[in-house]
Design a protein around this nucleic acid. Structure first.
Length: 881
DNA sequence: CAAGTGCGG
DNA sequence: CTCCGCCGCACTTGT
């Protein structure tokens, strides 16, 4: 059997992969989608073809012989987007690390090198496969040379194979005639001219009749479509030139040694390191023994018998350090993972609640282990605390939070991700083990796999602690982790367990009242519109408003008309229908999300227990889910009324304290701008003060409009201002907005320098930091896309401010929680809403609670300006604001 | 599952 | 000139 060679058109395949795959970056922000796609196609082709030799050809930047023939020739020198260009050198490095033979030659394109090698290999009796995204290469096809063209459609890659016969079948032309075809019809991407008015159809017809360009010209008078005939007469020289440009040089002067192209083992240590850096998880699993760091022997077992469990837990009690995971899904306990080191081995167990091995027993043992061990690591300590009471904060290590601090942009911190990143181990993810099954179903149908997954969680928690801690030290975030995030976790856990009392009866009545009005509005709307339709469907609504009734508004979204409130508000004064729709929307929102939405979360204890997530946001804020209690209405009175259903337990009141403009105060401090600092020291009303200074009017003569504008500018500055955004906000021209901003920066001269400095820092380091060292990477700043880059700039300006404010209130929460306990108060922290804390306060403790809130919130950080709070008490959340 | 919309800071 | 201000979560429709 003859030997096989695989030849690859490097740039062409990279291009295909780049445009065929969604954007992909590693944690450093390096784009990797083209490299990923290239390797995917490479591996797939090699598996299918099993070639003996492999060579990848690349173009060089230097002009080629074609440029000398024809000035306007573009060839492959099309401009490449930055996101693709940065991947080319990395791709070459990766291939070099894999020991892949690469070739390029000044003055020649990759096509020419491929053509030359293809023909020479064919002469040596080899079977040749040429992989390219470019159909030009079809001219090389023969009975031994196959051109493979990968096509990406709907995310799936299919490959078309062309031997000479296939070319003929598809194009009715011989491979040779593909050159003629291109000469006649031209090629816009290479800037090869071709004949005007001659497309693929006509060109093919002419070639079928006359064979080639020269012969066609010899019979030019017979050429059928008159347009083509004239084009021939006028531009024959062009067609001849194009033919020369289109023809691949199959006799390029290359030094090539087939032996150096023989395929060796790709999976070298070097390649492994590259794949790891690029975070190509799928490919890493191709490395078997090579490269992977030596791993301690590990054993995983499932435990279902009580005596067995007692023995293992007894052994675990002797160990200084444990990995632990408690698996609950939908409130049902499914198992417990436990991991520890034992004589050079790592033992991991999954305990399943069966027979005598009960949930109660296992949770009790878990609590005991946590109290006794010197160190317990878990991927999610807070979820574990739901089932036990623990005091000592210092010996717990939350690997999920550590991983979050190290890269807050990830959407999840799963055991396989952490293992890959911090242990260099490729573990099967939950999805690999259970597919789409959840753990509840997995434990039923795939118990072994599900149990293994639980073992891995405990295992990774145990083993990743050291590397995570080291990474936190290196990034100077250990303090943030140890002194803020870890203690906060306990505070948040207590808040979740505490929950907040809700008057279900009142909530139901509120919803019923809304519904009465909703039905009224619905009727009126149908009448005004002249037909019934689904008001909740933006699509149907758009048709009614902008097509049937022909209201001005036009298109805005990619799918059709925008019916968003800011659009409808402009129409509402003139059209009762639109005004009614806006009211309907408002009520429907309140009913579905709040009245009905909250009701389902009220527990047996009359309380709602939200979940506070600590590892979600890019900036360091916490988020609240199931339900979200951080977006309860307040701005509109009707919505605000909902707060009356949030009530304290009997004998208690609510104390609510919120920071006054914490972000602007953080800005004043971080920028060090004396004028802004001074403004805060002098004035109670910072927006009026800003207006006075920006618009050069005395403080007492500031108009309401001026104050409102100044307020918008203050907000804008914090958000990473742009004249466009501000102009939208204030309904003014961009020019005016730009003027406001300029005035602002003149008034507070250090602000601009500070914000610019943040962007510069982000560009240099790749991330920005808060006052407490929290990091946020800003990979968008490397993008060649203007919008992406601008986004990166705004993020660089906003994140340190929002993040520092988040750090401060976290500190306050920890201290408030601690003070309540130390003073043996019954009062408890219930909610945090970004700059606000809500405390359920025993009636006889109101004075102490106020003192604690005031003291701990104001002193949470020492800034150049004071931190001020507004505080209220009330018998429900409405009255406490 | 994405898109549109709207609630909060 | 680019035409977006930042950070979230939940509900509804429609493919």
């Amino acid at each position: 059997m003859s030997e096989k060679i695989l030849l690859i058109d490097g740039h062409s395949i990279l291009n295909r992969a780049y445009y065929g795959l969604p954007e992909l970056t590693n944690s450093e922000g390096l784009h990797t989608n083209a490299i990923y796609g290239f390797l995917n196609i490479l591996f797939k082709t090699i598996e299918e073809e099993k070639p003996d030799y492999l060579t990848v050809a690349f173009d060089l930047h230097a002009p080629t012989f074609r440029h000398q023939m024809y000035e306007a020739y573009k060839g492959t020198r099309k401009p490449m987007p930055q996101e693709l260009r940065e991947q080319v050198p990395v791709m070459k490095d990766v291939l070099a690390a894999m020991g892949v033979c690469m070739i390029s030659k000044e003055g020649y394109e990759a096509d020419d090198l491929l053509g030359t090698l293809a023909k020479k290999s064919e002469e040596k009796g080899m079977e040749v496969t040429v992989l390219s995204g470019d159909r030009d290469l079809l001219q090389l096809a023969s009975s031994h040379i196959c051109i493979r063209i990968p096509k990406t459609r709907f995310g799936k890659t299919t490959v078309e194979d062309y031997f000479a016969d296939d070319v003929k079948e598809k194009y009715q032309l011989s491979p040779q005639q593909i050159i003629e075809l291109k000469a006649l019809m031209g090629d816009a991407s290479d800037n090869i001219p071709g004949l005007p008015g001659v497309g693929e159809k006509t060109a093919t017809k002419i070639l079928l009749e006359y064979g080639n360009v020269e012969n066609a010209y010899a019979h030019v008078e017979d050429i059928k479509p008159n347009k083509a005939k004239n084009a021939f007469l006028e531009h024959y020289d062009l067609a001849v030139l194009s033919k020369k440009l289109a023809a691949i040089n199959i006799d390029s002067p290359v030094d090539y040694d087939w032996e150096s192209a023989r395929i060796k083992d790709f999976y070298t240590q070097e390649a492994y390191d590259f794949f790891k850096e690029l975070e190509f998880k799928n490919f890493l699993s191709r490395f078997e023994d090579t490269g992977a760091p030596a791993e301690a022997e590990k054993s995983f077992s499932t435990v279902t018998e009580l005596d067995q469990a007692e023995e293992i837990i007894g052994k675990a009690r002797q160990k200084p350090e444990l990995g632990l995971h408690i698996l609950k899904e939908n409130g049902v306990f499914l198992g417990m993972g436990l991991s520890f080191s034992d004589e050079e081995k790592v033992l991991s167990y999954c305990f399943l609640p069966q027979g005598f091995l009960t949930e109660a027993y296992l949770l009790e043992q878990a609590q005991m282990l946590c109290q006794e061990a010197a160190m317990v690591s878990s991927l999610d300590v807070k979820s574990m605390l739901r089932h036990m009471d623990l005091e000592n904060h210092t010996k717990m290590f939350d690997a999920g939070i550590a991983a979050y601090l190290l890269n807050p942009l990830k959407s999840a911190y799963t055991y396989d991700d952490i293992a890959k990143e911090y242990l260099g181990e490729m573990l099967p993810a939950k999805e690999d083990l259970l597919g789409k099954l959840n753990y509840t179903k997995g434990m039923k149908d795939q118990e072994e796999q599900a149990a293994l997954s639980v073992c891995y969680m405990a295992y990774v928690a145990l083993k990743s602690r050291e590397p995570l801690k080291k990474a936190l030290e290196e990034t100077e975030m250990l303090h943030l982790f140890t002194d803020i995030e870890m203690p906060l976790l306990f505070t948040l856990s207590e808040m979740e367990k505490e929950g907040i009392r809700v008057n279900a009866q009142a909530l139901k009545e509120y919803g019923d009242q809304l519904y009465v009005r909703i039905l009224e509005l619905e009727k009126e709307i149908y009448q005004e519109a002249g037909e019934e339709f689904n008001i909740n469907s933006p699509k149907q609504l758009g048709v009614i408003l902008f097509e049937k009734l022909k209201l001005p508004g036009g298109k805005k979204t990619k799918t059709g008309y925008s019916t968003a409130a800011d659009v409808l508000e402009k129409l509402a004064p003139d059209h009762k229908l639109v005004a009614d729709i806006l009211e309907y929307r408002q009520l429907a929102k309140l009913k579905s999300t709040y009245a009905d939405g909250l009701a389902v979360y009220i527990g047996e204890d009359e309380r709602i227990h939200s979940t506070f997530n600590q590892t979600i946001t890019a900036t360091g804020r916490i988020s609240s889910t199931e339900p979200n209690l951080q977006n309860i209405p307040i701005r509109m009175e009707l919505g605000r009324l909902i707060r009356k259903v949030f009530i304290p337990r009997d004998g208690y009141v609510f104390t609510d304290a919120d920071y006054s403009q914490i972000e602007l105060r953080v800005l004043a401090h971080m920028s060090g701008d004396e004028k802004l600092i001074q403004a805060y020291q002098e004035a109670q009303d910072i927006h009026r003060m800003t207006a006075s200074q920006v618009f050069h009017v005395p403080f007492d003569e500031v108009t309401d409009l001026q104050r409102r504008n100044a307020k918008a500018v203050n907000f804008g500055i914090v958000y990473g201002i742009s004249s466009f955004g501000l102009s939208q906000d204030l309904s003014i021209t961009r020019k005016e907005a730009a003027q406001y901003i300029e005035n602002y920066f003149e008034t507070y001269p250090k602000i601009k320098g500070f914000l610019d400095g943040l962007v510069t820092e982000a560009k240099e380091k790749g991330y920005v930091t808060t006052m407490f060292g929290r990091r946020r990477p800003v990979p968008e700043l490397r993008s060649s896309n203007f919008m992406q880059r601008s986004f990166g700039e705004r993020v660089a300006m906003n994140s340190p401010i929002q993040g520092t404010a988040a750090d401060i209130i976290k500190i306050a929460m920890i201290r408030v929680g601690k003070a309540l306990k130390e003073q043996n108060l019954k009062s408890r922290l219930l909610l945090q809403v970004h700059d606000e804390l809500l405390v359920e306060t025993a009636e006889d403790e109101t004075a102490q609670v106020s003192t604690i809130l005031e003291k701990e919130m104001k002193n949470a950080a020492r800034l150049a300006v004071s931190l001020e709070i507004d505080m209220h008490t009330g018998s429900n959340w409405y009255e406490a604001k």
